[in-house]
Each structure stands twice: as structure tokens, then as C-alpha cells.
Simulated scan of single mutants.
Amino acid sequence: MSVAIVISQPGGPDVLKATEIALKEPGPEEVQIQHKVIGVNFVDIYYRSGLYPAPSSPAIPGFEGAGTVKAVGSNVRTFTPGDRVAYTGNPMGAYTELRNIPAGRLIKIPDGVDMQTAGSSMLRGLTAHMLLHKVRHVKAGDWILVHSAAGGLGQMVTRWATMKGARVIGTTGSAAKMRIAQAAGATDVLLHTDAAWPDRVRAIAEGRGVHLAIDGVGGTLLSSTLSVVRPFGIVASLGQPAGPIPPVRVEDLGFARSIALMRPSSIAYADDADLYRQGTEDLMFALQNGLENHIGAEYALTDAAKAHTDLEAGHTTGSVILTV
């Protein structure tokens, strides 16, 4: 038996229930892992709340974790019991002590990367890789705007972009979080609650605006974000914890602005085998060579509802994890 956090119907954090489930032996192409660390992300909240439809009912949330191999299927040759492994992406189902998962989803955790770092970095790290290598191939001298720069993804993007020589302007929702964004490497940090922030971003970025703006906040913030991108730059809209995003007219992107708007999916990125392989290789190399991932909050697996409550309320900074 394995303890899992199960959603039987959409709703608030209280719908997350600890349940004992029976787990079969891994299939021929599967690996059974004993979780040590499970990442908590806003995409989990979207599935829990019903914003995104769950693949089944009941469902186990979660797209990210790390642990040790307990057993392997008959056709698996790349892993053996005891290996340290991590993953992100489909299939959903990380909030559990034990799980069976396709072998192709797993990567081995290299020497020099601890289990907590690996388990809390996979989704955010792959998302950062997507933003900095696929959405825009960021290079030295680029200007990047990162909303929620004190959050887990915001800090990861800021640190990795800075390692590549880019200059990051961060925004936060409170003065208390500004120091966190600065410590992650942002050259300037602004409050996105200050109506003057778009003017300040354009002024800081050489009077022309940023090359890439990353909006993981949503709500009405996106319309202002479009105004701070220089011609032929791009805005990446990643999430909407602040609420639904009003429609954007294509006329708002050009001709005078000549900018692009993308809604990239980190799960789709992870589900592409080639992008997943390259992205996770680059991520592990970066983690071995100075890229840090700050863990801001840690909860027991059975306290998943509390983790969701705190993340939704904006009470956390950095990555949020469950431990087994």
C-alpha cells in the first residue's frame, strides 16, 4: 500500500485527501520509485480547482518529483534499484509515496545535485530552459522582465538568465519580497502594484523596453506587460494566479509595436522527448555549475492542503515541496 493525496472532485485545498492505495508491480516499460521529494506548483492548483480538467476521477495531482528506484519492469535496462532519479511532465500523479512511471520520463540525478534540489527544480528548471532557450534564445546583454521574481520560477529564471549574461528587471507584489528578487540577481526590482512600473521598466531597459517579458501572474497585468517590450520582442504568458486574462486583440501586438505574445506550456515542453532530454541535461549541468534553487517552504506529503493554501495566498517564496 502507498499513501497518496487524492482529488475526488474539484474545489479548494480541502478536497486533497490522504488515501491508502494499492500499487501494482511496474509494467514492462515502467519503473517504481519511492518518492523523497515532490514539487508543488501552480499547475497542481489549476487541476485541483477544476480550471484544468483532471485526466481521471479520482485523480492524484503533481507533475514533479525525485526519489530512489524500488523496482523496474522487465524491459527496463537503464535503471536499477537504488538509483537516484527525478522527473517532470505527464502522467500526472506525483503526490504519493510510491508510484509507477514510464522509464522514459526519468533522469538519473548526477553527482553534486542533492535529492531536494533535483526534486524541486525539474518543472521550474525545465520551464526556465524553455523560456531562455526556446521562447527566446537569451544571450548576454538582453533585457528580461520577470514578474513574481521572488517566486520559485522567478528566482530560477533570474539566476539562469544572469548566468547567461542577461540583465533582469524583476517585479514583486510586496516590498518584503524585493530583497529576495535582488538576491537572485535582478538588477532592479519594482512593485507591480505601483502604477508607474511600466514607465520605469522602459526607462531602465535603455528607453526601448525589454527583449523578453515573462508574466506568470495573469489577470490584468498582461495588458501592461505588453507595453514594456521593445519592437520584435516577446511576451510569455505562463499562468494566471491573479485571475482570468482579458482577451488580447491581435492589433495590440502590431503594427506599431511589432511584438509577439506566446502562451508556452512547460508540460508540452516536457512531453517532447528531444526537448525534454536536452532541457534536463542542460538543467542538471547548470545545477552542478552554480545554478541555485531556493526552497522556500517544505511540508509533509499529508500536509499538501496546507501547501496549496499557502502557495495560493502568496505566503511562500522560492520552491515549495512535499517530503515523504
Score class of each variant (00 low, 15 high):
3 V>H: 13
157 V>P: 04
186 A>E: 05
92 M>T: 09
134 K>C: 08
321 I>S: 06
279 G>F: 03
191 L>I: 12
74 S>K: 13
255 F>L: 10
195 A>W: 09
6 V>F: 02
277 R>F: 12
131 L>R: 09
211 H>C: 03
249 R>Y: 06
121 S>K: 03
98 L>D: 06
22 A>E: 14
233 G>N: 00
229 V>L: 06
250 V>S: 10
33 I>N: 13
293 N>G: 14
44 D>T: 08
149 A>M: 04
214 I>G: 00
218 G>E: 09
30 E>D: 14
125 G>N: 09
132 L>R: 06
170 G>D: 03
70 K>P: 11
319 S>D: 00
279 G>M: 04
76 V>S: 13
320 V>Q: 03
252 D>G: 02
241 P>E: 06
306 K>G: 04
212 L>Y: 09
262 M>C: 11
296 G>K: 03
200 R>A: 15
285 F>Q: 15
298 E>D: 11
144 I>S: 02
285 F>A: 09
153 L>W: 01
43 V>T: 11
189 V>T: 10
292 E>A: 02
301 L>D: 08
106 L>A: 05
195 A>H: 15
96 T>I: 13
275 L>G: 08
242 A>L: 06
173 G>H: 05
25 E>M: 11
254 G>W: 09
1 M>V: 14
91 P>G: 11
57 S>V: 11
196 A>T: 15
71 A>H: 10
55 P>N: 12
56 S>I: 09
110 P>C: 04
34 Q>V: 07
227 S>G: 02
232 F>W: 15
259 I>S: 08
47 Y>T: 00
30 E>G: 07
3 V>F: 12
39 G>N: 05
146 V>K: 08
225 T>M: 00
129 H>G: 04
195 A>Y: 07
296 G>L: 08
140 A>P: 00
265 S>Y: 06
263 R>A: 03
199 D>F: 10
191 L>S: 14
136 R>S: 07
267 I>Q: 01
98 L>G: 07
176 A>H: 12
324 V>P: 06
239 G>S: 06
278 Q>Y: 11
275 L>C: 10
38 I>R: 12
212 L>Q: 07
286 A>I: 08
157 V>N: 03
14 D>V: 06
50 G>W: 09
99 R>I: 07
83 D>A: 10
63 F>G: 02
18 A>T: 15
161 A>K: 02
166 A>W: 13
308 H>S: 05
76 V>L: 10
68 T>P: 14
273 A>D: 12
286 A>F: 03
103 A>G: 10
246 P>G: 02
161 A>L: 01
284 M>E: 13
85 V>M: 13
173 G>I: 04
193 T>A: 02
162 T>I: 04
282 D>Q: 13
154 G>Y: 02
148 S>N: 07
202 R>A: 11
238 L>Y: 03
123 L>A: 07
196 A>I: 15
155 Q>L: 03
261 L>I: 11
317 T>E: 00
16 L>W: 05
194 D>M: 13
12 G>Y: 12
90 N>V: 15
259 I>A: 11
290 G>D: 10
86 A>D: 11
20 E>V: 10
20 E>Q: 13
107 I>Q: 08
289 N>K: 14
